[in-house]
């Protein structure tokens, strides 16, 4: 067991997989000497060489498209997209090729490609550096989409994503990169697509993932001071979704608030709400509420804190749910 930041945990996971499997390659912009703009690949090129840690020519379509080709040839590429807002030049390759190749080949060609994307806001950045595009990918059949909220999950989930024979879009909450936590590299990890109840409670359920898990936990602590016990679920996997864990919780609490940074319309909250009302209709004591970004472009950084969901907005929704 050791204490490390999420950034260090991700680096350790990459290192672990590269040591274990010579077919694992890392590619992306500035992943070599610089170690990536967030230093997640720090030191990997020095230790594994320039032919396994590849500073890609500057094009995201090229990064993902060539990863598809490498996968056809039996490799296991791990691509880094520098920031959330720069994944779109690769969108065609991800949606039309990476996601569909296994299906198109009747299962004869696997696409064990991992695409790491630092995402979300809260770091005071300029445009395109704070977005939450997860729903686009979760909407696409053939992709698996996961996101970590703490160093331990970062370590284990990235290892599992790389080991997975399907393409995995791996969202990293960049504003949590430097928060530290315990990582037990000898533990038996939970399955990749399992949600975790990270705080038990009986009055209402909060579902969050990635950067919003810490905020949801803060909200639950604040609610506890006012006498409400919130159950907090870290969804972890956005596709597939561990609906059972959510339904089980809502069956107990009768109330559900889903929190994410992404705009609410057609976000993950919409899908979760739909599933829960299908499966737990008679358990619901209140409408399912969503707390998320507004349906606007991500705003200039000086007002991002107001735009992003925070403890107050979560508690406001919880109050509304509890008042039914």
């Amino acid at each position: 067991m050791s204490t490390m930041s999420m950034a260090a945990a991700l680096n350790a996971a990459l290192r672990n997989r590269m040591e274990a499997d010579p077919k694992v390659l890392v590619m992306g912009l500035d992943v070599g000497k610089l170690g990536g703009v967030f230093r997640i690949t720090d030191g990997l090129q020095k230790d594994f060489g320039e032919d396994r840690v590849i500073d890609a020519p500057l094009g995201e379509s090229g990064i993902v498209g060539s990863a598809v080709g490498l996968a056809i040839r039996g490799y296991r590429p791990v691509c880094e997209i520098q920031f959330d807002g720069f994944v779109y030049p690769a969108f065609d390759q991800i949606v039309c090729q990476l996601a569909k190749f296994h299906n198109r080949s009747l299962g004869q060609v696997k696409m064990p490609v991992t695409i790491r994307i630092p995402y979300g806001g809260g770091i005071g950045a300029v445009e395109h550096h704070s977005e939450s595009p997860e729903a686009y990918f979760a909407h696409t059949a053939g992709l698996k989409v996961v996101t970590c909220s703490n160093p331990s999950d970062a370590y284990w989930m990235l290892r599992q994503a790389i080991e997975c024979d399907d393409p995995v879009i791996f969202f990293e909450p960049k504003r949590r990169y430097w928060a530290k936590g315990d990582v037990d590299t000898d533990a038996r990890p939970a399955p990749l697509h399992k949600a975790h109840v990270v705080r038990p409670g009986r009055d209402a359920t909060l579902v969050a993932y990635g950067p919003m898990v810490a905020t949801a936990l803060d909200a639950a602590r604040a609610a506890a001071e006012d006498g409400s016990e919130l159950e907090v679920i870290d969804l972890r996997s956005l596709s597939p979704i561990d609906t059972d864990t959510v339904v089980q919780s809502v069956t107990k609490t009768g109330r559900l608030v889903v929190v994410h940074e992404a705009s609410v319309t057609l976000g993950m909250g919409a899908e979760i709400a739909a599933r829960v009302q299908e499966r737990a209709f008679y358990s619901l004591e209140a409408p399912i509420l969503r707390v998320g970004g507004f349906d606007t472009p991500y705003p200039p950084s000086r007002i991002e804190e107001e735009w992003l969901p925070d403890v107050d907005r979560i508690l406001d929704a919880v109050d509304r749910a509890l008042s039914y």
């Binding site: 507004f294 705003p299 000086r302 007002i303």
Partner: peptide, 23 residues
């Protein structure tokens, strides 16, 4: 000066939608 908290809603569309106005 910093933009106001409601400014993100201002110029999303040339023709504002009722939906966004309600939000």
């Amino acid at each position: 000066t910093d933009p106001g908290p409601l400014s993100p809603f201002d110029h999303v569309y040339a023709e504002q939608t009722d939906e966004l106005a309600a939000q």
